[in-house]
Design a protein around this nucleic acid. Sequence first.
DNA 1: TACAACGTTCACTTATAGTGAACAAGTGGT
DNA 2: ACCACTTGTTCACTATAAGTGAACGTTGTA
Lengths: 253, 253
Amino acid sequence: METYLSSVKNSCHLLKLFLDSPKELGVTDLSKRLGLSKGAVHKLLITLESEGLIRQNPANKQYALGYTLLELGNKVLKDHNMVEFARPHMHRLASATKELVCLCVIDGTDAIYVDKIDSQYPIRFDIEVYRRFPLYATSASRSILAYQAESFIDGVLSEELRTFTQHSLKNPSDVKNRLTQIREKGYEMSSNLRNVGVTGIAAPIFDAAGQVIASISTIGPTDRMVPAQEDWIAAVLDTTRTISLGLGFKSSN
Amino acid sequence: METYLSSVKNSCHLLKLFLDSPKELGVTDLSKRLGLSKGAVHKLLITLESEGLIRQNPANKQYALGYTLLELGNKVLKDHNMVEFARPHMHRLASATKELVCLCVIDGTDAIYVDKIDSQYPIRFDIEVYRRFPLYATSASRSILAYQAESFIDGVLSEELRTFTQHSLKNPSDVKNRLTQIREKGYEMSSNLRNVGVTGIAAPIFDAAGQVIASISTIGPTDRMVPAQEDWIAAVLDTTRTISLGLGFKSSN
DNA sequence: TACAACGTTCACTTATAGTGAACAAGTGGT
DNA sequence: ACCACTTGTTCACTATAAGTGAACGTTGTA
């Protein structure tokens, strides 16, 4: 049986509340959002503050995330072998397409962009790195989702699907059709699903165990992407194939 | 009275253990280092894992820091107004000196570099950002320490001083002499104290309340820094003065 | 000047955090 | 191929600390 430590879980929830909030939050506000008493939240805060994960603004007594989280977050990145390994290959792809190139990884039931190389065009599309989003949301993440276990996919798609544009995939069967196409073609090219006027081309990265744990994508304005699509699809597939082989993946056919 | 939540404190200690360790750690190892039973550590780990702050490698069952810490650390940086505000001024300084330019802030009894602009020379000195170090250790941090309350300074210097080179300041009185000089001159230039052959020039940034909460420094090989020292000292002082005024600091004389 | 909202403190009680031993699974050595 | 050791995991138990809710002191505003 999995029995969690309540106060630790509360402290995690508290920290995450800051992700979608302004810089500083007060005790009362936090206690309402967490559903805990003010006293309990205050104890959480002074404990986290003593460890540097939270810091209090002396001027207005409000609380904010502390610098120790910066240290810990940076350690995550330093430990991430994939970022280091993929970077030169991403650079090669970026110099070919001149568009945004992204490295996306799976974490639990979410996806995260852990690295990117910016487009060289003055008019360019940009993404936010280091921020969770649903696996069904973008080409990059769907390219990973497509190769997960059926039961896992169903689990991800069982919750209410968030939509980002009016063209976003609204129901599970639409997503599953896309995933099937990805498995057939080995990549996905999609437009307007996450951002209107934006097209992405993505393909999966396989590790030595044959698992898909990341993807490479190149993303840009649709009117630049479509004319070059054949070249960029080949370039993305070449990049992911090279990285996969470098990770020890043995292609079966 | 300050009564901390023990399990929250334990979870923080656990996370910080990873900072000076390899990527992955085991339950037994962690329990020894934390002085807790294996069962307790396991409960901590599965709780933190359920929140994404920790993740377990399925292959070897060992644990590592999770991606949620990346999200949280990035939010700290996004919320940090100083970084954004100082950046253009740092760029101006960097294009003048062509050496490494750093933004250092104080956090508790430690200092952290929260931003840097790399040197343009092929032979260059580099620092590690987002990582705590003692306030007495570098020009950048001493420039901040010098303007803190006397009692605070004594507190910082009351612990055993870490040394980094054979030239490092070894006892509190040496540090306090330096701090006095900083207050007299308004900047510090030092060589070999943190890295042999390396010279730094640093000056404090004052906020609207007259508090020193950050510093700007330029750092490089001693043989390039010494010949240009007068120009670079003036440039650093000009930079910090501009930033301080921009923050609302009213110089008293 | 009075009110309202805030962060902080405190005594209390129930829920739970941490223990230590037993368990299952895997590794490495002989 | 076997054994012995170490690993991560589970569990019942009890002392302990987590969370409550009301009261306090302070701050800024009407």
